[in-house]
Amino acid sequence: MTIHLEEDGETCRLAIEGEMSIYEAADHKNGLFERLEGCREMVLDLSGVGELDSAGLQLLLMLKREAEAGGKRLQLVNHSQAVYAVLELLKMEQHFGDPMVIPAEWRTP
């Protein structure tokens, strides 16, 4: 479920709660791209993402592409461990250009 936190015309702050899997992908798509349309900067809080699968990842990649195409800024913040694990697996930690706070216990040995 996408939770709308705050919108001031310039910056849209969103938090995703629950899973980002194929089951939610259609819903997320509708919510996210609509919001992106109406703002200059999007801050996406991923702290509540319990599971991220390829559909969810694909959605994030698409979001970034669209943001860049529209000259907008996309910021992913507060990555959950599930999100971090996927980005680490794909060695994409740097891809979204966002700083990540990684608690020591997440790191795979």
Binding site: A25, A26, Q58, L61
Partner: peptide, 16 residues
């Protein structure tokens, strides 16, 4: 991600 289509054609349940 070069196979990702334009947003209008993007099916979030399809894999690209």
């Amino acid at each position: 991600t070069d196979r990702l289509p334009p947003l209008a054609d993007f099916d979030p349940e399809s894999c690209y």
